[in-house]
Design a protein around this nucleic acid. Structure first.
Ligand code: MN
Ligand code: MN
Ligand code: MN
Ligand code: MN
Lengths: 217, 217
DNA sequence: AATAATTTTTAGACTAGTCTAAAAATAATG
DNA sequence: CATTATTTTTAGACTAGTCTAAAAATTATT
């Protein structure tokens, strides 16, 4: 069994690994958990004792297979709860994160299995992120950033890179939701902004937005 | 805000107060939380600082109004989650307690309001215990123990005194569920056992059972 | 009322998790 | 390659929550 704190560390390392491949640095973990490097070093030693990470001083950490499975299961719970909050409890996608952050630590295999069934075995959370299965396997889709599309190309919204409330509410305001088709009409060299078509309407989109919205061609 | 531990102490005191009226003793709290009296004394001081209990050395504690409201809110959450687990996730009434014990500490007013609505604003949990409203008010029903009924009298099952898995599964086996009518056919002076009628069938019930089943006349 | 039994509190210690400040190791730079 | 700069680890301290053992207060019993 893992403590709440250990679980949060595991999850942070899991997410950092999916981006960077190499050993995860103490500082990277500290930044992602808004804690201090010295605290991270302490915790890493505990996690290493528990055989969920491999650790050699000054070399960063890597999750073991056991660690990966454990972390994936926490992510699974987090995302299933997010679906529940949106589908059953009328939360909007920018309200779910903090609550899911708590709910992901509830210990009960039956609870999560039944929740999965209640929700109809969803494959993705409200932000388009894939839900790991019971074994910790994830279906990674080949999604690309809107900013990488060329003029005339189009795709369907499938996820966000930044899932802050601010960004999500911005998307809501612009009526950009998952599942909608976007076509790039124009790319401005000057400020890298885009002119896109969505819902048959023309919309101007900044570089920052285009860098945080994932599409599937 | 209260820590998980503080919340568990508050809830324990709340339940003990509803039985005993007077100041709750250190030992009683220790017993109910399976901890040591010295730990209780420490925690009581913190709770007293936070103005949720009144405390004078060697005199036991009483909840303040604020403390009562806070505790009732935790009980509210516990019982709403129990209803959710039974109604939506196919848990049986003997499986819900440990999970609800964790879920009751999740912090999110919106979560609990929406859950309440999803469940159709239930008034009682799966064990027949009343669910406090948002203000912490409880609808106490005048329920009586089966053991207090006289020969020929009858009532409807509305709750349990002991909510251990063992007792609840025993009731399941005997098909004694909330809402069913029970009539006392015979009272044995020898061992205080009862002969009852339920579902048109005759059943023999020990003193221990009769002391843990609540009826409403 | 005096003594014994019980309850409660205190004193001191321990673990988990965190922090600051300093030391050690690694990486970057001229 | 020698010197800086950065990263990481260690050392020591702090809080929350718990425990054991001993002291103090209360309650029960002769
Ligand atoms: Mn979390
Ligand atoms: Mn998400
Ligand atoms: Mn609890
Ligand atoms: Mn209950």
């Amino acid at each position: 069994m893992f403590t709440l704190s250990e679980e949060n560390y595991l999850k942070a390392i899991y997410h950092l690994e999916s981006d960077s491949k190499k050993g995860i640095s103490t500082n990277a973990i500290a930044k992602s958990l808004e804690t201090k490097a010295s605290s991270v070093t302490d915790m890493i030693k505990k996690l290493s004792e528990k055989e969920v990470v491999l650790y050699k001083k000054y070399q960063g950490v890597t999750l073991t297979e056991f660690g990966k499975k454990t972390a994936a299961n926490i992510v699974r719970k987090h995302r299933l709860w997010e679906v529940f909050l949106v589908e059953k409890l009328n939360f909007s996608w920018d309200e779910v994160h903090d609550v899911a952050e708590q709910l992901e630590h509830i210990k009960s295999p039956k609870l999560i299995n039944e929740l999965d069934a209640l929700l109809g075995f969803p494959t993705h959370d409200p932000h388009g992120d894939p839900i790991p299965d019971k074994e910790g396997n994830v279906n990674t889709v080949d999604k690309i950033l809107l900013s990488t599309l060329n003029k005339e190309e189009s795709g369907v919204c499938v996820g966000v890179n930044d899932s802050s409330s601010e960004f999500l509410r911005f998307l809501d305001k612009k009526k950009i939701t998952l599942g909608k088709k976007i076509t790039v009409l124009e790319k401005e060299d000057f400020d890298d902004s885009l002119s896109i078509e969505i819902d048959g309407e023309k919309l101007s989109i900044s570089k920052k937005i285009a860098n945080n919205l994932y599409l599937k061609k």
